[in-house]
């Protein structure tokens, strides 16, 4: 027979003066192919319509539904209840500002990150609508896309000890973003320019390399490789700077 699932869900509505942070219990009968998306919506529709959480694509592609699921940051829509024990504890992602219950403000955090990393192609070239596109090796395109797959869910930030201690730490998602532009032949920034952004304790030298980030990334981005790659590149750049090169 199907299980009765017990959910312990973090509740707090900062807009309600009477609300205090607390855990609330909900019980729900498990159904076939149930995901946390299905479960949370049923709880909201059937038991407590004020429950706040974020879903959008419900298909693991938009990154909206990051939360801490039994102690581990992950995408809720991507989590099948049958892979979880009968008692499920859900908390909002730390580091990000709480909006209410399980909903956090990832949008502001990531927009700030775009500005810090100048997350766009830097080029002097003008677009010419009459001309053929500039050629690119397909291998380059594929490698860029590999890193572009980040859905900005924030799981890697929430899992990172450094990011939790220091709110000026860029975090794996931002470092990965820098790597994405670094390997893009269209971006004319030099290694020195990148060094300005990440060659410090807020950036690559603040990373302790324990790789909680890669562990939780739902898109399985090769964060370990990228962090290593940046550390080497920036290490060399920093040596060059030391010797005035």
């Amino acid at each position: 027979m199907s299980r009765l699932l017990k959910f312990n869900i973090f509740r707090y509505n900062p807009e309600d003066a009477q609300s205090e942070p607390h855990m609330q219990e909900f019980v729900l009968e498990e159904t076939d192919a149930m995901t946390l998306f299905i479960a949370l919506n049923r709880i909201r529709e059937e038991q407590d319509p004020s429950l706040q959480f974020d879903f959008c694509c419900r298909a693991g592609i938009c990154g909206s539904c990051g939360m801490v699921i039994n102690g581990r940051p992950g995408l809720a829509c991507h989590t099948k209840t049958k892979d979880l024990p009968g008692e499920i504890t859900l908390l909002p992602l730390p580091v990000f500002k709480l909006v209410g219950d399980l909903s956090v403000d990832t949008g502001s955090w990531f927009r700030e990150m775009y500005t810090k990393t100048e997350s766009w192609i830097h080029t002097e070239k003008e677009f010419d609508p009459e001309a053929l596109e500039e050629r690119m090796d397909n291998k380059d395109a594929v490698s860029i896309y590999e890193l572009e797959r980040c859905v900005e869910c924030g799981c890697c930030i929430a899992a990172c000890g450094t990011a939790r201690m220091r709110d000026d730490f860029l975090g794996a998602a931002a470092l990965n973003r820098v790597a994405r532009f670094l390997i893009d032949p269209r971006d004319q920034r030099s290694e020195k320019d990148y060094y300005e952004i990440i060659g410090n304790d807020m950036g690559i030298f603040g990373c302790m390399g324990l790789l909680a980030c890669e562990d939780v990334c739902p898109k399985h981005l090769p964060l370990q490789n990228q962090l290593g790659f940046l550390r080497r590149k920036m290490g060399i750049t920093s040596l060059k700077r030391l010797f005035g090169k």
Partner: peptide, 14 residues
């Protein structure tokens, strides 16, 4: 499509 390539889209290439 070409404009998007100029702006940074990693289109698959021939």
């Amino acid at each position: 499509m070409r404009r998007l390539a100029h702006w940074g889209v990693p289109w698959n290439r021939v």
